[in-house]
């Protein structure tokens, strides 16, 4: 079971993230679950590109010629920045909802709007 431990961690993080999104009622906690899910995806992308005994693909004083795949790391960088952007917009919406309705409970907000 230990030969692909990072993938098992990916499954556990995915389950935790989706569970938080489904079960929690607070909007801020739902966004935290979304970020956990983003971390799961990033870890999966990085783990797919790992090569046995490889180092980071940077040639400055590189100790070994075996390097991991660089493209997944570049895509993961893109994914992290877009995650930051969406989190900023979602938190702004959460603050506006709290200011307008006085609560961050999704069910209370749904009842208020009918």
């Amino acid at each position: 079971m230990l030969w692909n431990l990072p993938f098992i961690a990916v499954v556990l993080l995915t389950a935790i993230g989706i569970s938080i999104i489904l079960l929690k009622k607070n909007l801020v906690k739902i966004f935290m679950g979304l970020n956990v899910l983003t971390s799961a995806v990033n870890l999966f992308i990085i783990a797919v590109g790992y090569r046995e005994g490889g180092i980071a693909p940077i040639f400055t004083n590189a100790p070994s010629p075996v390097m991991v795949m660089p493209t997944p790391q570049a895509l993961c960088l893109t994914s992290i920045v877009i995650g930051v952007a969406t989190t900023a917009v979602l938190l702004a919406f959460a603050m506006l909802l709290y200011r307008m309705y006085g609560t961050n409970d999704v069910e209370a907000i749904r009842e208020l709007r009918g």
Binding site: M1, P6, I8, V11, T14, A15, A47, V48, R51
Partner: peptide, 17 residues
């Protein structure tokens, strides 16, 4: 869903793309 994903993941190989 977690069991299904775990079933998929155990078939992947890590460290040898």
């Amino acid at each position: 869903l977690a069991a299904f994903l775990m079933f998929i993941v155990t078939g992947l190989t890590f460290g040898n793309p």
